[in-house]
């Protein structure tokens, strides 16, 4: 996701970096105008999915056996065991991935063996007749004994993933076993999704997503031996933003105290709001919005920030007020952020 940690780190450097000369009183105010940090957010680095790891439970009842009863089982065979839907995202309608890393783990908590030849199938819908919806199919080469976990990794290219994917254990088979008692512990399928390269994303209209990232923030800790001097720096940080994403965004950094419950201060007065760009049907940006905002660095601001122990970066994105039913974004979309310092440094010579 869009990380603000670098920005915070840079601010720390500027707040505290001039302390080595602090031996005498000084009235020197060199004024520096220089770029400090930049970042480009692409479709890949934007947090598209609700999570990168999903777990789905498979209760014994799905095999037709209640828990707590001892049974002599014949050999089992199901052509399609499932579906087990996994909601990938509530705001992304469809992702056309160029490269996708899938890590799949099956933990067999059943008292029976899951036989080799069982196929783990991912489909974009729950239609088992139509094979066009298959995202991937991986057969088990070996039995998964009771209590064991089998993990495998596959790399997929040029696939389309919908907002919900459906897992199936196709051609599920298990050898006959006697005196078998199922418990309440379900078998589980855990899926790790790592999108490496995206071709196109289609967002739902009128949806929003909030991303927050909390990190430790302590000026005293970072400056080590030199406590911050409130008069070391004053001036402003100017933020230049080019938004080619078809997403309205706003971001803010909040500084929290040690309890993480109280907001001490925020980096921007109102947060920075970015108007969405427009894209054509292929997802290419047809207009890019440019905006400039600034943060005044004052001693009052610094006094408050000094108290902070944590910083939360908050990014709100939405597709509200977009007239299209679905909004497309391809690889040409991006969000460029550059921070320029216009700072008066108080050197101590």
């Amino acid at each position: 996701m869009l990380s603000f940690r670098p920005l915070l780190f840079i601010i720390l450097i500027f707040f505290c970096g001039c302390k080595k000369f602090q031996q005498l009183d000084s009235q020197i105010h060199p004024e520096w105008l220089a770029p400090i940090a930049k970042t480009t957010v692409s479709l890949e680095t934007l947090s598209l999915l609700d999570s990168t790891q999903f777990t789905r439970k498979i209760p014994s009842l799905d095999l037709g056996f209640p828990s707590g009863i001892t049974l002599d089982l014949p050999a089992l065979y199901f052509s399609h065991l499932g579906p087990y839907p996994l909601a990938v995202s509530d705001w992304v309608k469809e992702v056309h991935v160029q490269t996708l890393d899938l890590t799949i783990s099956i933990t067999n908590s059943f008292p029976i063996t899951i036989g080799a030849g069982t196929v783990i199938t991912i489909r974009n819908d729950n239609d088992t007749i139509n094979n066009q919806n298959i995202v991937s199919q991986t057969p088990l080469l070996n039995d998964i004994l009771p209590g064991r976990t089998f993990t495998f990794n596959i790399k997929l290219n040029d696939r389309i993933i919908d907002d919900t994917v459906f897992f199936y254990l196709d051609q599920f088979n298990s050898p006959a076993q006697n005196n078998v008692t199922f418990t309440n512990s379900p078998a589980t399928i855990t899926v790790g999704l790592n999108i490496l390269s995206v071709e196109l994303i289609k967002f739902y209209a009128d949806r929003s997503k909030s991303i927050r990232d909390t990190s430790e923030f302590s000026i005293k800790k970072n400056t080590n031996t030199h406590p911050i001097d409130d008069s070391t720096v004053e001036g402003k940080l100017i933020i230049y933003i080019d938004n080619a994403f078809p997403l309205n965004s706003s971001f803010q950094v909040y500084f929290l105290d040690g309890s993480k419950r109280n907001v001490v201060d925020s980096l921007f007065d109102q947060g920075i709001y970015l108007q969405s760009a427009t894209t054509d049907d292929n997802g290419s940006p047809t207009s890019i919005t440019h905006s400039i905002d600034s943060v005044i660095i004052s001693s009052g601001h610094l006094q408050k920030i000094k108290q902070a122990k944590f910083a939360v970066s908050s990014l709100e994105m939405n597709t509200i007020n977009n007239k299209s039913v679905e909004i497309s974004a391809n690889k040409q979309t991006y969000l460029d952020i550059q921070i320029v310092g216009d700072l008066k440094m108080n050197f101590h010579l």
Binding site: P35, A37, K38, T45
Partner: peptide, 14 residues
């Protein structure tokens, strides 16, 4: 034109 912040380990990155 500024330190690139595309890294996750920011201090190492800088």
């Amino acid at each position: 034109d500024g330190f690139s912040t595309s890294y996750t380990e920011t201090q190492n990155s800088f």
